[in-house]
């Protein structure tokens, strides 16, 4: 059943159109930067963007930072919100459940296909960022360490070798993927509550907008550690020396709790729901 769901998801043109659109913004930003040579001042704009003109190796991270606040969650909420509610809306949910597989297995299959979508999306954004960075910006050649010419200066003023950058970029990709699982879990839960994919998607986005807003309020600082978007930007901490694990670990644990609770709620709701469409 999992294979069926995966095939269904990745055979749909809509999935690839979403991923394509998601990559359009980082590519546009890269082209504009390369043409105008005007990088944002350090400390302004998405993280790492100020450094890419001199070092294209960092563009996968800049690309992730560009799509992370809004576009990536929208794409994830769109697909995850559609997973159950979309079947209900098109009237196919009944038939899916008529198979002997059971509702819990269907939910798990939907869940895994959404997670696969999140991973593929993040990896594609990073890969397109890598290609764009190599093509449009100056790149420090790998292995050119003689005289200290190679490597990239990390946030702490320590020189990171190209191998360091690759390893830490992979960690960051993994972390961003996990950060998006919370969004996926919200959308999947709402998707079991309603028959409208749009409502499920907007519900998940509403939670994220509220979370981002509360995070900026000093008055809400007591609940800030529990907001789903609180630790999203912690992937930057992989580029400090030594790596600052504190927020990364908290971010992973928080996403784990959200995913577990929301999937539990989705399961409690879906397995006993009256399916009429």
């Amino acid at each position: 059943m999992i294979a069926v769901e995966l095939r269904k998801l990745f055979r749909r043109p809509r999935t690839w159109v979403t991923i394509g659109l998601l990559n359009a913004l980082p590519v546009l930003v890269a082209v504009l930067l390369a043409v105008t040579d005007l990088a944002p001042r350090p400390g302004e704009g998405p993280v790492f963007l100020s450094a890419v003109l001199t070092n294209g190796t960092l563009y996968p991270l800049a690309a992730l930072a560009i799509v992370l606040p809004l576009f990536l969650p929208i794409a994830v909420a769109l697909i995850a919100g559609d997973s159950v509610a979309g079947e209900a809306q098109s009237g196919t949910l009944r038939y899916l459940l008529a198979r002997p597989a059971g509702r819990t297995r269907l939910l798990v299959a939907k869940l895994l296909s959404v997670f696969a979508f999140v991973l593929v999306t993040v990896v594609v954004v990073a890969a397109v960022g890598y290609l764009v960075g190599q093509l449009l910006f100056d790149v420090q050649p790998i292995g050119a360490t003689i005289g200290g010419a190679g490597g990239t200066t990390g946030l702490s003023g320590t020189t990171l070798t190209p191998a360091d950058i690759v390893g830490r970029t992979l960690l960051a990709i993994g972390y961003v993927t996990v950060s998006m699982l919370g969004v996926a879990a919200f959308a999947l839960f709402f998707s079991t509550l309603t028959d409208s994919p749009l409502v499920a998607m907007l519900g998940a986005l509403g939670i994220l907008v509220a979370s981002s807003l509360l995070f900026t309020l000093d008055a809400a600082s007591s609940i800030a550690p529990y907001l789903p978007t609180r630790y999203w930007l912690a992937f930057v901490d992989f580029f400090r020396v030594p790596i600052l694990w504190r927020d990364v670990v908290r971010g992973l644990a928080l996403q784990g709790v959200y995913v577990a609770v929301l999937l539990g709620a989705a399961w409690a709701n879906f397995t006993t729901k009256d399916v009429t469409s």
Partner: peptide
């Protein structure tokens, strides 16, 4: 530590180095 950078002060016997990433 700030979300997009950091400023580090390293002290040794002869004084301090202050590194500003941004």
């Amino acid at each position: 530590v700030s979300p997009t950078g950091e400023t580090g002060v390293h002290a040794d016997a002869g004084g301090t180095w202050t590194w500003n990433y941004e």
